[in-house]
Design a protein around this nucleic acid. Structure first.
Lengths: 151, 151
DNA sequence: GTTAATTTTTTGTTAAAACAATTCTAAGAA
DNA sequence: TTCTTAGAATTGTTTTAACAAAAAATTAAC
């Protein structure tokens, strides 16, 4: 559906405005579908994101700063996200012995297990959308988005 | 900045995953900048959205259903958004005489004034991003996003 | 004409986002 | 040493999002 139909606009719209609405709306659709996948596992998108970052550490712990700077949404409150993951026993949290200001967060086996169970569903989700485009179009879309958002 | 640098990923990533991250991250950037514009006026992005929809009615009131279906985020709670706008006297709310289940929401002059004051700043924001792309690229980006999100 | 079903909106509740303020630790300067 | 500054994480508070449940009015069925 074209973005004008989504917001039921009758008057023509500048392309510069259209892009913004298109990005916003597309993100909404993506996030909605993704939340459906996560829902049975009772974790939020942000929590999933933290788990992914921790798995990417390959056994090494990550402190709060590191997690924060790798998140897409830079405003999220990492402490609280880790709190939630701790309750579910998906991560452990320890004070860093070298620098006691820092906290070492590590993903547990239980956390790895839930990620592993999610992996195929997440991949399926990603592919489901991208199959609307050709390989070339996918590359172009990535390039244009990267170019567009530079400020 | 390329999305791999944003999330500080060292391993290569599927393009299908890259698109999702790119859309998510771009939306984040856009929303962040937009919120900066709105902040001095003490309205949220969603509230702004409702005001825009009401102005688009050109004097006619809109009921809750109509507002809801024109919003980008279909899950937002229109009643509460209108509550907030009422407190700021940007809208009025009346029971529809033909069908007393319905509520007629109308933008006030004060609401129109704040939109008018915002208009140039919003346009500037839209153009600031789109000037990173050529006219052709803008058109292509819009087309690709519309094609991509179809499920 | 009364009951049931549907539409439209509101309310309630819990979780999450946003942002400021605070605590605790480390490092460096006087 | 003691004081100050900076770094890292937590806590507190206020909004907002998400979703379920309830309320009110209308329409349809019997």
């Amino acid at each position: 559906m074209k973005i004008e139909d989504v917001i039921k606009s009758t008057v023509p719209m500048e392309n510069s405005k259209k892009i913004i609405l298109n990005v916003m709306y597309t993100q909404n659709i993506l996030a909605e579908k993704f939340n459906e996948i996560l829902k049975p596992y009772d974790i939020s998108g942000e929590q999933y994101n933290v788990l992914r970052i921790l798995r990417g550490q390959k056994g090494n712990p990550a402190n709060m700063c590191v997690i924060q700077e790798r998140m897409l949404a830079k405003t999220s409150n990492t402490t609280r996200l880790v709190d939630k993951l701790l309750l579910k026993e998906f991560v452990t949290r320890e004070v860093c012995p070298e620098n006691r200001r820092k906290i070492e967060v590590t993903i547990t086996q239980k956390g790895l297990d839930v990620l592993k169970e999610l992996d195929p569903k997440v991949t399926e989700h990603e592919i489901a959308f991208s199959k609307n485009l050709t390989d070339d179009e996918i590359v172009v879309l990535n390039q244009l988005l990267e170019k567009y958002r530079n400020q």
